[in-house]
Write a protein that binds this DNA or RNA. Structure first.
Length: 431
RNA sequence: GCCGGGUUGGGGUAGGGGUUAUCCUUGGGGACUGUGGAUCCCCGGACCCGGGUUCAAUUCCCGGACCCGGCCCCA
């Protein structure tokens, strides 16, 4: 027996139904926000990730050298590929609104909410540097969760990289990257450890209080400027008011709660403006989605400047959250038929009828087992079909068929030619 | 890469250095080729892998794989 590869998942039908429903909602919502779907390759040159990331990331990819000596990797994230695709087409009218649902791979130890293969809902707006684009991206992420039934179960924390850079500089931190890295660990370090590491980094320790007071609190956006010293506020009025206005815009697109949280900086990424993360309210899981503005990635990857804002939403955490809220439901297939056949010679007629039904848009299974009729009905019931059609020698002789509504148990018999009418009459009888 | 806890039919489990490895469930068949979910009967199906100790290992020891969780990292 050969085992499944470590960190990978098998998905059986009972999970695929809710899974597909989840992806359908993502596609529908993105389409309603007027995003177009694209598909990105599963393999890229390793160099695509070299330009923006350190060696650390490269050790956590499924990479290999192909027969021609090229260094390839199974894509660990979508954004570089999407940017590569976008910048190699000079004819596209801006803004471009794209989404995709790629599988991504990461070579690391599997743990809760994270396996080595997952699917991510990824959406971006290119060529629009406005706060309206920022708001629409967050609005799309939230609307998707709302549509899945998660309204009120999650909230969004936002921050702005430019604002954080100003804050870090204001308190005397010149190594901005290290500052972000430390802030990113705020929730993982003890208060004392964090403080001592911050003071180490920051030359003007008396000013560090400013940051310490900001961190770890969720601040309502309309109260944001009350948290800053007067002078700092004046110098950064533009960034602060943009953040506040973004919040107002988002509130028109979703009822989700949006708060300012200084500890959200999104690791060592390539973000240049707003950054955001969606969390479950109970604080039980990893972030549901995350993203932000990255206006210089086009320059890094393809030497083509392009404004961009986007998010990624992984299926793993979302599945945990949906299951926890009893939203990971099996939906029975609407308009499904099982055809019970009695006697081998009836199967030809059953196939003809099945073809007609399929052309009408129904899902049809023809039971060719020749088991007893009661066993065939048993099987049909276990498969939770809506209707069964019984075809036996009697029906063929009289050119009729019998349709049985499996929910109500009512049953009608009529001419085969009147198939559609029969379906109507049996489904109306159940009322 | 590191740390902790696990692994007995498809799923959930009991047990235990030696006899036919327990129970529930699922699956297949039958009672029942002309009307479904019930009931009854029958059947199939497991000790993760390798090494060691032992007369004897599924059980004890060591290593590995995989699973769950955590660290690192976070795309």
């Amino acid at each position: 027996m050969i085992e499944r590869v470590r960190g990978f998942r098998d998905s059986y039908p009972e999970d695929m139904l809710p899974r597909q429903k989840m992806f359908d909602v993502m596609r529908e919502t993105a389409t309603q926000f007027y995003f177009s779907q694209i598909e990105i390759p599963s393999l890229e040159y390793l160099d695509l990730y070299r330009v923006k990331s350190g060696e650390e990331l490269l050790t956590q990819t499924f990479s290999f050298t192909d027969k021609g000596g090229r260094e390839l990797t199974m894509i660990p994230e979508a954004t570089p590929s999407v940017v590569r695709m976008l910048t190699s087409r000079k004819d596209l009218k801006k803004p471009v609104k794209w989404f995709c649902l790629p599988k991504l791979w990461r070579y690391e130890e599997p743990q809760s909410g994270r396996s080595r293969e997952h699917t991510q809902f990824n959406a971006d707006i290119f060529g629009d540097s406005s706060m309206f684009a920022d708001a629409e991206i967050i609005g799309l992420a939230c609307s998707t969760l709302d549509k899945l039934g998660l309204s009120g179960k999650y909230k969004v924390r936002i921050n702005d990289r430019m604002l954080m850079e100003k804050i870090l500089r204001d308190i005397g931190i010149s190594n901005i990257a290290r500052g972000y890295s430390l802030i990113d660990h705020y929730r993982k370090l003890s208060a004392d450890d964090f403080k001592s590491q911050l003071l180490e980094l920051c030359k003007e320790s008396e000013k560090a209080d400013f940051l310490l007071q900001l961190l770890g609190k969720e601040i309502k956006l309309d109260q944001l400027d009350t948290k800053f010293p007067e002078q700092f506020k004046r110098e950064n009025e533009e960034i602060v008011s943009r953040l506040k206005n973004t919040g107002i815009l988002v509130s028109k697109l979703t009822s989700a709660e949006l708060v300012y949280d200084a500890s959200v900086v999104r690791g060592l990424g390539y973000y240049t403006g707003i950054v955001f993360e969606g969390f479950d309210r109970a604080g039980e899981f990893r972030s549901i989605f995350g993203g932000g503005r990255y206006d210089n990635l086009g320059q890094l990857i393809a030497d083509t400047p392009i404004e961009a804002v986007g998010f990624g939403m992984g299926d793993a955490v979302l599945e945990l959250l949906l299951k926890k809220n009893n939203l990971w439901n099996l939906t029975t297939r609407a308009g499904s038929f099982a055809m019970c056949t009695v006697g081998n010679e009836t199967i030809i007629t059953a196939y003809e009828l099945a073809t007609k039904l399929r052309q009408l848009g129904y899902a049809v299974n023809v039971d060719t087992s020749q088991a007893s009729l009661s066993n065939q009905l048993k099987k049909a019931a276990a498969n939770s079909v809506n209707y069964t059609i019984i075809i036996g020698p009697k029906e063929i002789k009289d050119n009729v068929l019998t349709i049985r509504d499996m929910n109500s148990g009512t049953q009608v018999t009529g001419r085969m030619d009147d198939l559609e009418k029969l379906i109507e009459s049996v489904s109306s009888k159940q009322i």
